[in-house]
């Protein structure tokens, strides 16, 4: 289904043209390298009616953040607007397989947690909303066969969230809500900016051919060819044979964490070293920053 560009969205027509030009140029690239194209073009199932949920979501956010203070009808109206937005998006997911329903559920949970994070005035509830978002995102990543990253995110962010809880309990007691927690900073302006940004992002992403056709780059993911022979294990040799024998349309989903580790420690070894350095510097910096300077005070 095409992204139907009607008259109110005429300015975006030019944008779509530019995008399709870029896409055509980029699609010409894999032929030059050794990569092969797995698909030709990606039709878009998103239409302009999908922009309605963004508007409804922004309105829902504004109503909820106002209503959560003292107005029940505002709160109810905001919740209804958000639910309608979610329903409109859900109708767009036409092939309702179990996987897509699960994925949709995780996405809705994450978005709901995010809205809860935005509107909750008590910092503890906001932190709870953040934890919901992180766990749901981990579910999404898990379903995209990024097992290691899902686990690592869960560990890192869960630890960070617990620390945040400690901070909230230390600094901002729930018993006395501060004014800076209650009063948000210009929510109308922020919601407008957010809606515009999300509209632009959605238009760019869901335009015809905006997402490049999948390419299996045979040179990059495991650059086994560049390694000396004794570096390659039998499994690696088998995998590279499989990669070479791969036909268009066939998928070797990178499911294995072992493959990820091999790629991380061969292709991206310098990046790993740099990341380790940055972690060390950040640790030292955090300790230096948080140190209490008792000598100067006493």
């Amino acid at each position: 289904m095409n992204l139907a560009i009607s008259t109110p969205f005429a300015p975006f027509a030019r944008l779509a043209d530019v995008l399709s030009d870029i896409t055509l140029m980029a699609q010409a690239l894999p032929d030059a390298s050794t990569g092969q194209s797995l698909g030709q073009s990606i039709p878009s199932t998103w239409t302009l009616s999908m922009l309605l949920p963004i508007l409804l979501g922004a309105i829902g956010y504004l109503l909820i953040q106002q209503g959560v203070l003292n107005s029940r009808p505002f709160f109810a109206g905001g919740v209804i607007a958000s639910v309608i937005a979610v329903v409109i998006v859900a109708i767009g997911f036409t092939p309702a397989t179990l996987e897509s329903i699960l994925l949709m559920g995780f996405c809705v949970l994450a978005t709901g947690g995010g809205v809860g994070f935005l509107v909750a005035r008590e910092p503890v509830y906001a932190a709870l909303g953040f934890a919901t978002v992180v766990l749901s995102v981990c579910g999404v990543l898990f379903m995209q066969s990024a097992l290691f990253i899902a686990a690592a995110t869960m560990i890192v962010y869960a630890g960070a969230t617990i620390i945040i809880f400690l901070f909230v309990l230390m600094f901002a007691q729930q018993s006395d809500l501060r004014n800076y927690d209650i009063q948000l900073n210009r929510p109308l302006v922020a919601a407008t900016i957010g809606a515009i940004l999300l509209t632009t992002l959605t238009l760019c992403v869901t335009a015809e051919n905006a997402v490049f056709a999948a390419t299996a780059d045979l040179t990059r993911p495991l650059s086994l060819a560049s390694l000396p022979d004794n570096f390659i294990s039998d499994a690696g040799r088998e995998l590279s044979k499989k990669l070479e024998a791969m036909e268009p349309g066939q998928s070797i989903v990178p499911k294995s964490t072992a493959g990820l580790g091999r790629s991380l420690y061969t292709d991206y070894l310098i990046a790993v070293e740099l990341a380790g350095t940055i972690l060390l510097v950040a640790t030292i910096g955090a300790i230096a920053l948080a140190q209490r300077t008792t000598e100067s005070q006493s």
């Binding site: 698909g39 990606i42 039709p43 878009s44 199932t45 998103w46 956010y61 953040q65 997911f93 897509s100 994925l103 996405c107 994450a110 978005t111 995010g114 809205v115 994070f117 935005l118 906001a126 978002v133 995102v137 999404v140 995209q144 800076y180 927690d181 009063q183 948000l184 900073n185 210009r186 929510p187 302006v189 922020a190 919601a191 900016i193 957010g194 940004l197 999300l198 992002l201 959605t202 992403v205 869901t206 905006a210 997402v211 056709a213 999948a214």
Partner: peptide, 26 residues
């Protein structure tokens, strides 16, 4: 590709929620 598009939109939603939170939260 459709799945990728939907996930990209979801990532955009998360990004925008974070941005609105950064702008409004004090």
């Amino acid at each position: 590709g459709v799945l990728t598009q939907n996930l990209l939109v979801f990532g955009g939603i998360l990004f925008v929620i974070g941005m609105v939170g950064f702008l409004t939260r004090r």
